[in-house]
Write a protein that binds this DNA or RNA. Sequence first.
DNA 1: TATAGCACTATACTTTAGTATAGTAGTTAC
DNA 2: GTAACTACTATACTAAAGTATAGTGCTATA
Lengths: 123, 123
Amino acid sequence: MSRISQLQLEQVKKCSATFVLAVNDTMNVINGKWKLPIVGSLLFGKKRFKELERDIPKITPRMLSKELKDLEMNGIVTRTVYDSIPVTVEYELTKSGESFKRVLDVMVEWGLQHRKSAMGNMK
Amino acid sequence: MSRISQLQLEQVKKCSATFVLAVNDTMNVINGKWKLPIVGSLLFGKKRFKELERDIPKITPRMLSKELKDLEMNGIVTRTVYDSIPVTVEYELTKSGESFKRVLDVMVEWGLQHRKSAMGNMK
DNA sequence: TATAGCACTATACTTTAGTATAGTAGTTAC
DNA sequence: GTAACTACTATACTAAAGTATAGTGCTATA
């Protein structure tokens, strides 16, 4: 009936399950309206809360705070509190966070190509 | 005051605006709960509506129909109606849609690496 | 004393996304 | 005639995501 054995099928299943997990992890960095702008801004260097707020138009402090917590939990961003007066807090990408640039790069690349070929199909 | 000229600043802005558009285009393929599963399934070859429904656990026909329309509009998927009896409809990835595999690949790659380094940080 | 800056939090609300359930219109098989 | 298959659509609902607005506790400056 089938060309592949039961064992092979199990292996394929395990493999694709791992892939799904990996893709989901990636999605956690980019889902929602504000995560990509935040990561994008932090790719230019560490920033304070207010700096990010000014960098990202229309974001509310509630959303910024929420998404930063999320990114911190997912190991994308670190939060450092300095006991200066008043306190300053710095947000910085982790190594994983920085390496996300590679993903962004292919997203840009694909997006540009897709735009080009979509234009081609309209003519 | 600043190290770069006004002209240079304008160029940077234009460039980053293009990048934002490109990334947004990419996001349109992957946002929501069901687009990635659909594209993922179609990467294994063209499928009929019911086949996709069976392939993707828990998806409702409403969502499948909606997301397929969305993907069609965005030039990721083509819809072909055959006037057999009863009608059969086939969904297939466009060239752009197929090339999206590259993006998925780096997403998997990054996700796997991120998982590894996150584990490392826990120990 | 008033105003402003920093780094948020709280509450209430609206909007968007997704679900549940049923139904349409055709054909084929029992 | 009734059940099942295909490819959906319609309506009503819930859940999740995001917004608006105000407020906290601190300090520094005018």
